[in-house]
Nucleic acid binder design. Structure first.
Lengths: 356, 356
DNA sequence: AATCGATGTGAGTCCGGTCTCAATCCTAGG
DNA sequence: CCTAGGATTGAGACCGGACTCACATCGATT
């Protein structure tokens, strides 16, 4: 009835109060469902609100409750199905508790991450879930934590930062899967990761990412267990775009002492590696064995289906959100935080290396 | 120096003003970089702000500027790489103009969508990008639009709603790809979609989704062009989870008069369909031809690589964000909105049907 | 030297809610 | 019939910035 052109300013409690002939305070109480309100007043206010199509301004509400019912999520790249799935776990859990999610991508760039965290803090999110790009540059996260804002880390650990962290033990699974390859007869095992570094990989160099350094540790331990030297010359970092990954793959397979097995650090890399292998006219697993992190559904469709390392990604996202909400609502951390483990799913992309 | 336990309340302009020995108004001006401020005052204020580690409260700022610098994005399912990519296009573009994104999933449920829109409006987002679950139930979107809040539709059209819409012409591409199948000799062409309906498909029933009804129209037109009757008995809706899709696939291929070609309405369905085909021991394209919407990277890795319908998803997300920002900043719509077209990428999953 | 317009500056209002506090109503117990 | 105590109610402060307005200040103009 009243939806004319005069729709530039929203209806406020004051408007409703006026229409219902009561004070602003009473209208607010009836609307907000708190305090004491007589049935008569409540009815009139609710009717007026309905009539005027009143909607509360959450911004104003946040202003003096101090809660925005919004959590910030900072991930590397939402386009990566890994994060897509984790985000789904987060949003599902958050929604169930009445929280919304502001999402920011960092492209694994720490500067962007610092910026993202600042923006979210300025927007007064109630808490943050961050998949930190670096396990070393974490001052900004430390500051968040010290300022008392709830924070949960996802996927990667930050040593020295005493914060709830939801991640799998990469050392263990890396050890298991490397051993699997070694037992199959592989010695020349390559590892390709997107991790950005200033210089190319050299044996023993410090790695910014806990994920990657844990994987390296697991790999080295597996070789040590077998009484072998790990092939440090086959670790490749800075595998960024599709083109650079293909180039790296070609180089690994065409060098004098080529890799007989390749481990891809995530599903996006794996995609390009497999494609590069196919382009070289080589076949999996006859010519090269292949293994990758992330159990995307399509890995079952290739010929042969790919052997992968599956992580309970959705559950981890959900757990991160649950932990955050627990913190935000001031409840204590649970006695035992849920432990997540990755699993090696043996399909068909690993076999004994070809004889020379 | 001052980071004691007293960290429960944030630093405000008033605190900064006090420290800098100036009025709140002056401090606000220096901080907000507006109005006239002497160099002396500016310096003192900035120094005090630095010292106190002042951070503006964006909530408060939004309160009286009326702008939250936040846009709401409502999609079916962020876990679906299609939306992941589109979202990436949106967030990249939004960030470049200083906007953040609140993301909500609807699982293609209109009730959830209505709720999402309401929540976002209550949070006073500056604009909305919605991939509407239904092209029919759009009163909530109409209300948004009428209230004057900028709104852009993504992926699906809403007939009768005069709103900027970024989507490809599904009729055309459906016609093209169906013709392609018909020319290859197929007559029994099946189409599988997730679209939820109350009853199973029957010829000519109204379809809630513009995307799907456009595809049906294109398919029917292709058959008409060839002087043939479209196989209305091979259209399947309500393909929800993996299990139901497999069941549908089996039924389509094992019925008395089976389908010789299957079109999957999106990449997620395609995944399950291909897997079901493999499980049946059938091969593509010898036993069944296959075609799907969405050009995911993995479709190049299967044997044979899959023939797909590629949409410029990232660009569409970016365009939607650009259009929204244009509206929010009060600029006119561009003379010609960019047109997006889907492309049939012929790889290896379509061949002539097997002889009976 | 008187005047004028361009800064500078501080007090105070406003945004749209929540919440405190004191005043007013009512009703049951004495 | 009187009164204590709970239920109601309205005025107004407050959250943290942005912004209006009235009041200086001050060098420049004539």
């Amino acid at each position: 009835m009243k939806s004319d052109v005069s729709r530039r300013r929203d209806v406020t409690v004051a408007d409703v109060a006026r229409a219902a002939q009561v004070s602003k305070a009473q209208a607010a109480r009836a609307l907000g469902n708190y305090g004491a309100v007589s049935d008569d007043v409540r009815e009139r206010v609710l009717a007026a609100a309905e009539e005027l199509d009143y909607r509360p301004n959450e911004l104003a509400r946040s202003m003096n409750t101090g809660k925005s019912h919004t959590i910030g999520v900072v991930v590397g790249d939402i386009e990566n199905p890994h994060f897509g799935l984790a985000t789904r776990g987060i949003t599902d859990t958050a929604k169930r508790s009445g929280y919304n999610v502001i999402l920011i991508n960092t492209d694994e760039d720490t500067a962007a991450e610092i910026d993202a965290v600042r923006v979210l803090l300025d927007k007064r999110v109630d808490g943050l879930i961050v998949a930190p790009a670096s396990s070393v540059e974490t001052q900004h996260l430390r500051r968040v934590h010290e300022s008392g804002r709830p924070l949960v880390l996802l996927d990667r650990k930050a040593p020295g930062l005493d914060v709830d962290t939801v991640a799998v033990d990469m050392e263990d699974i890396s050890h298991e899967s490397t051993s699997y390859l070694i037992n199959a007869g592989h010695r020349r095992i390559a590892f390709i990761s997107t991790l950005r570094t200033d210089e190319p990989y050299r044996e023993g160099m410090p790695l910014d990412s806990s994920q990657i350094s844990d994987r390296r540790a697991g790999l080295q331990r597996a070789f040590a267990d077998a009484g072998l030297q790990p092939p440090g010359d086959l670790i490749r970092l800075n595998a960024g775009d599709d083109e650079s990954i293909r180039k790296i793959t070609r180089e690994l397979l065409q060098r004098p002492d080529p890799a007989t097995a390749i481990i891809a650090s995530d599903g996006l890399i794996g995609l390009s590696v497999v494609e590069a292998i196919q382009e070289l006219g080589l076949s999996i697993p006859e010519d090269v064995s292949f293994l990758m992190y992330d159990d995307f559904a399509w890995t079952r469709l290739t010929t042969p289906p790919l052997t992968v390392i599956a992580q309970p990604v959705y559950e981890m996202g959900a757990a991160a959100a649950a932990a955050l909400i627990r913190q935000m609502e001031g409840r204590k951390a649970p006695a035992a935080a849920p432990v997540f483990t990755a699993e090696l799913i043996r399909r068909g992309s690993v076999a004994a290396p070809a004889r020379r």
